[in-house]
Design a protein around this nucleic acid. Structure first.
Length: 115
DNA sequence: CAGATGACTCCCA
DNA sequence: CTGGGAGCCATCT
């Protein structure tokens, strides 16, 4: 599922668990922690519920900023703008996963850059 | 088997 | 908005 997250987009641990519909959010983190050093899997696109980074050091933030993800003053990724909507219905169905519930209008208008 | 831990979340004061 | 505390669950002592 993580591989499906497009560059510049992010998902929360909870999003991933909801999509796979099995483990608890912590297990997603546990799984990602086991990734080998040079993994090509976009692990950096998975964040905590509030958009903060759980890993230590600056590595994850650097990778995200490099692909265009913006952070606020409190070091939280701007979820309203970069949160991944979830897998397409067809893909989810084909892989035994669930889709994410639609997000509210406030977030949507942020994504469209309205002001 | 009891206890501690952690790349998690929620809820409440 | 913030901190604390309690659920949560697979792993590891």
């Amino acid at each position: 599922v993580v591989v499906r997250i497009a560059p510049g987009m992010v998902a929360t641990y909870g999003d991933i668990t909801a999509i796979v519909g099995l483990e608890g959010a912590r297990e997603v983190g546990n799984a990602l922690r086991e990734l080998p050093a040079g993994s090509d899997l976009p692990w950096q696109r998975v964040l905590s519920r509030d958009g903060t980074i759980s890993t230590r050091g600056l590595r994850q933030r650097e990778l995200l900023e490099a692909e265009g993800v913006a952070f606020d003053a409190a070091s939280r990724a701007i979820l309203a703008r970069h949160r991944w909507p979830g897998p397409a219905a067809e893909w989810a169905a084909a892989h035994g996963c669930r889709t994410l519930p639609p997000r509210d209008e406030g977030d949507r208008s942020e994504q469209l850059g309205l002001f």
